[in-house]
Design a protein around this nucleic acid. Structure first.
Length: 355
DNA sequence: CAGTCGTGGAC
DNA sequence: TGTCCAAGACT
């Protein structure tokens, strides 16, 4: 087909081409062909900044554990966090839990049906509200995620589209009969064909109308922002143990890994090895440490904006009564305690070297 | 508004 | 190896 420009006159052909592609080629996903607002909600929150393949299994287990809004609203915070363990961005779990409680307690269990109503809920931003409103309730509103941003940036050959332009443009393209499918079709195209690197324009159903493809600029659209390099920090960490038990504390709800269980730690960036060991020992004050700390191999862990190097030390101790927010658990099976990936690494190292 | 907030996979 | 990125939200 000859190159064409996307105009009000050609819009319906563009819509038809993309929806045909979606109907024919869409991936089979557990949350597709689903009209339960709660299930749509869970999938959308899990998918925030997280790959489809990662979400699949979490989604399945989550619905088994929390089959509806009521069961989630009634759940314990730590139980919720444990179900989210390993997914990352743990504040999402807390906000999803809050949202469930708000809907059950204030909304009588009825999920808001409009974008504006959904937008009020914690953890539901412009994208998620648009996705929910269009997919679950058929409201003709845009849902601009990273995929849609890339697709529109290429179709209109805009290097750095502003959020307001994206919303307005996406709103003007919506196929009014199938808003939910339309938004998902745009995302599906971005996820499978109009991908960041080496887009497959030769099989793209809408390349005819793509200005970037016509100009040969698709690889440069949208412009990739240079992100700041992660901060490097050193952390001393204390593994207090007695027989097979280790000591964990619950992190504060605010901040990194909020609410997760972890070994006591302290930042020691720039300090000497001796000072690092001393700071690790200081972490165990008051817990009844018996001997000196045994250093474990350091391990690196990369967060989004932090490159952390952990310096773990194992201290033989004695199980003693602990206050709220601390616990002794079996090192080989800390079940029911949500542990961050980095802490699991340290725990595995401890089990291997000390136990 | 630029920074905060995880993790695993692709290349 | 490092680098980028993935159905963002919130401050």
């Amino acid at each position: 087909m000859e190159p064409a420009k996307l105009t009000p006159k050609s819009l319906s052909a563009f819509q038809q081409a993309l929806l045909d592609y979606y109907d024919k080629c869409r991936r089979s996903l557990p949350w597709r062909d689903e009209n339960d607002p709660y299930r749509i909600l869970v999938s959308e929150v899990m998918l925030q900044q997280t790959r489809v393949e990662t979400v699949r299994e979490y989604y399945r287990r989550w619905l088994k554990q929390f089959p509806d809004l009521q069961s989630l609203a009634a759940a314990d915070s730590h139980e919720v966090l444990k179900a989210w363990e390993g997914l990352g961005y743990y504040r999402r779990a807390r906000r999803l839990h809050e949202t469930a409680r708000v809907i059950v307690e204030q909304g009588n269990g009825t999920v808001p049906r409009t974008l504006d109503g959904l937008r009020e809920l914690p953890g539901i931003g412009e994208y998620t509200a648009g996705a929910m409103a269009s997919i679950a309730f058929g409201e003709a509103v845009p849902a601009v995620d990273g995929n849609v941003r890339r697709v529109l940036s290429r179709i209109f050959d805009v290097s750095d589209p502003r959020p307001s332009w994206l919303r307005g443009t996406a709103a003007g393209l919506i196929e009014r009969d199938r808003p939910g499918d339309w938004n998902q079709a745009l995302m599906e195209l971005g996820a499978t064909v109009c991908v960041p690197r080496r887009p497959e324009c030769d099989v793209c159903p809408v390349s005819t109308w793509c200005l970037a493809h016509q100009a040969g600029t698709e690889s440069d659209r949208p412009t990739k922002s240079k992100r700041s390099c992660p901060k490097r920090i050193q952390l001393a960490l204390a593994v207090l143990y007695d027989d097979q038990q280790v000591f964990l504390i619950r992190r504060f709800w605010d901040g990194l890994l909020g609410g997760m269980w972890a070994f006591p730690e302290v930042e020691v960036s720039g300090m000497s090895d001796a000072e690092t060991g001393a700071r690790a020992a200081a972490l165990s004050r008051g817990i009844g440490v018996v001997g000196v700390g045994q250093p474990l191999p350091t391990c690196k862990h990369r967060f989004t904006h932090i490159e952390a190097t952990y310096h773990p030390f194992a201290f033989r101790s004695a199980v003693s009564p602990v206050e709220d927010g601390a616990v002794w658990v079996l090192a080989t099976a800390p079940t029911s305690f949500a542990l961050p990936t980095a802490q699991k690494k340290v725990l595995a190292s401890f089990v291997e070297h000390i136990l």
